[in-house]
Design a protein around this nucleic acid. Structure first.
Lengths: 239, 239
DNA sequence: CGACCTATTGAATACCATCAAACGCCGTGG
DNA sequence: CCACGGCGTTTGATGGTATTCAATAGGTCG
């Protein structure tokens, strides 16, 4: 299995051979997590951070009336809880949306790297900062955009992120999640997600059959969703 | 003027004398920004990060129809754009809600510190990670909570943060912003903010006259808002 | 005192949630 | 082989929360 973390990092800045070696060595213990299983729970005090190797996962919070709000979707190559190195206890849970393989990276190792590999540490810091930028965009979307635009943004973002690590095929990619999951991520009811998606399909913006998503009209989709990928920081720069 | 950044950091972990000295020395050039002025603009490529010394500021994005969404409020002691060390260009703007004093901390200096002061840099990393945690909570609130609970959370959070750095007087604190600002932060219309606030006042939850906020019933307020300050990481721990 | 900003009020409307039920698909088991 | 149940999707009806539009009132500052 390819090391997508390496890809994720090298999209953003050049790494030295030594840094690449360190990153490759980080994947030691691999866990298999089955779909619909939490592998981080609110209140945990973690001693490892989890790196997605395959599958999809989601961070979420549950509010009083039982509603679930997903605040992030993680794809292969993403660190799920790098921030658990610094904060505790965890203020959210993480669940596997599909069967997942995750690598557990010990906090001890990461803390040691902050001493020995300052540039690599900045790259990890960058990953958490990009996370943050995604939260901001989701907040703007949830608070201000109508359902269809919000959904459009979601598909554009996931496509862009998957494409960046080689998991998209043109404008097509796998998204094996349910409309309920999508509603939990957008802060919309299942019914409303369903009706909005149908409208988007009727308008020829996208297809979503089985687990396959096809973005049929990138131009109109990005326009109606006001999607601008700048916040994903997909350019090489000095970090 | 007290160094509130020092306070902000020492709330979360012990600093060595050397680290305290470094932090104190970071405040060199101070800028005065008047209310309603942007001091960071979307698209900027910054060479400094801004530290709030006094006043209130807000990060925001503007969407197509002109609506403004505030994604964060900054109080004295907060870094406004520490993340600009790592990402560029900026994906949002920052505006002064009141007259502000800000310190400009050069990225060169910060980058140098990642080499020489690993623990201190983890503390700065922590600040950006707490930022992130706040975004998550705002997202949950915007997407899932009714207006009153959302407003309640906001007041609870700001009070907790101000209190932590000594800017609250019991359950009372200064919040010299408008209801329009509040609506922009909550993703609610001015009209709805106004009516919700009135309801909360009638129910004896809070007062807001002039710039003074009084939280009259912390118990009921936190209960109705489902506020839990864990995500602010206000405990000392090894970071 | 007038201009401007902020707060307040009321009415009409839009978007989305909730409730309820049916439909298709697929795996299981009689 | 077909009945059954579970899960995800789809549909229609109804109600509620929040928006928008529009107008008024209060306060502050030059």
């Amino acid at each position: 299995m390819d090391n997508l973390l390496l890809k994720t990092l090298e999209l953003r800045d050049e790494l030295s051979a030594a840094e690449r070696a360190v990153v490759s060595d980080m994947i030691q213990t691999v866990h298999r997590v089955s779909a619909r299983t939490d592998f981080v729970s609110e209140g945990d005090r973690a001693t490892n951070s989890s790196l997605m190797l395959s599958g999809l996962s989601a961070r979420y919070n549950v509010i009083g009336d039982g509603k679930r709000q997903i605040s992030a979707i993680h794809i292969p190559g993403d660190f799920v809880d790098l921030h658990s190195l610094l904060i505790e206890p965890m203020d959210h849970s993480v669940t596997a949306l599909t069967d997942c393989n995750i690598a557990l990276v010990p906090h001890n190792l990461l803390r040691e790297l902050t001493r020995s590999e300052p540039h690599l540490m900045r790259m990890f810091w960058l990953l958490t900062v990009i996370d943050s930028a995604i939260f901001r965009q989701w907040l703007v979307a949830a608070a201000r955009l109508p359902a269809e635009a919000q959904l459009g943004r979601f598909f554009c973002e996931i496509h862009t992120r998957m494409n960046a690590v080689g998991l998209a095929d043109g404008f097509s990619f796998d998204l094996p999640i349910t409309q309920t999951d999508l509603g939990d991520a957008m802060g919309l009811s299942l019914v409303h997600v369903n009706k909005s998606l149908q409208k988007m399909r009727r308008e020829g913006l996208l297809l979503w059959q089985g687990s396959r998503v096809d973005l049929l009209d990138w131009e109109r989709l990005t326009a109606m969703a006001e999607f601008d990928p700048t916040y994903l920081n997909l350019e090489r720069a000095r970090r």
